[in-house]
Design a protein around this nucleic acid. Structure first.
Length: 269
DNA sequence: AACACTGGCAACCGCTCGCTT
DNA sequence: TAAGCGAGCGGTTGCCAGTGT
């Protein structure tokens, strides 16, 4: 399967987008819709690679994008979903309405991985965790390398669970919550089995409802995150419930041995 | 005030997958 | 069946504002 280069770079702009380019892109997509990214720049009068246009639209210009101010609820959900799914940013983003995979990835790399590593080292000072908390010291290049090591460390932090999760990792595909819900409902109806604790993958995890145990005994910061609600947001309570519901769905799915494979199939469908 | 360093984030790159021809 | 293309994903890079010395 050959794969031609995305596009010729000759004569194309790179780097930060200007307001004018944004306007051109928005206007074109509003008039013609998304898709056909390769031909879009030419038609829209943009000297950009199609991939660049797509990225710009998907991550920043889409009207339903929610930027910045990641709430404690979202923060907590990202952590928990990452424990389940690993670096499947698009999948995680699919559980967080209005958030993009790029934003979540950046947020994880710059905030959460460091925090978890810090918590991990505090909780396991006698253990060597193999790497510092990211960009705290050393050259930037070495920090980049450490970032990768850190993410590996996070995985090893979850030990067997992470390894077993990988078995079930679905293809990175965005799914809507409703499809998951429908699937769960159908599975519950068709499966009388109530698995008490076949929970290889979920050990060490917690839900926002269970008092925040499971990340480690010294995990006050995360406990705080779980308890905090952003009262400034009028929809925060609703969002909190929704996010928890979504995670509960994942938990149920993973708890039900034998169901997970089917769940993955449903995602791929 | 000037410089060096750090951290956050936008954007790019390389790759894979699914569909079409 | 193989090749080409569009789309999407995760990893990485590079810019720049903020902070420290």
């Amino acid at each position: 399967m050959g794969r031609a280069p995305c596009c010729s770079k000759v004569g194309l702009y790179r780097g930060a987008w200007t307001a004018k380019e944004d306007t051109l892109l928005i206007n074109y997509i509003q008039a013609h819709g998304e898709g056909h990214w390769r031909s879009l720049p030419k038609k829209a009068g943009l000297l950009r690679c199609g991939k660049s246009c797509r990225l710009r639209w998907m991550n920043y210009l889409r009207p339903d994008i929610k930027r910045g101010n990641i709430t404690p609820d979202e923060d907590d959900l990202i952590i928990r979903l990452h424990s389940l799914l690993g670096n499947r940013w698009s999948l995680i983003a699919g559980r967080l309405p209005g958030r993009t995979d790029n934003e979540i990835k950046n947020y994880w790399n710059s905030h959460l991985s460091k925090r978890l590593m810090k918590n991990s080292t505090e909780g396991n000072k006698s253990q060597c965790m193999g790497g510092s908390a990211g960009k705290g010291s050393g050259t930037k290049a070495s920090n980049k390398r450490k970032q990768k090591e850190d993410s590996d460390g996070i995985s090893s932090q979850n030990g067997e669970a992470a390894a077993k999760i990988k078995i079930y990792l679905p293809k990175a595909t965005k799914v809507c919550p409703s499809s998951v819900t429908k699937y769960i409902q159908s599975m519950i109806r068709s499966s009388p089995r109530n698995v008490e604790d076949g929970d290889h993958t979920m050990s060490g995890l917690k839900t926002a409802n269970n008092g925040g145990q499971g990340w480690g005994s010294n995990n006050e910061e995360l406990d705080g995150l779980v308890c905090d609600l952003d009262s400034s947001s009028p929809n925060s309570v609703q969002n909190h419930i929704m996010l928890d519901d979504i995670f509960e769905e994942y938990q149920q799915l993973l708890k039900a041995d034998g169901i997970v494979d089917s769940f993955v199939d449903s995602l791929l469908a």
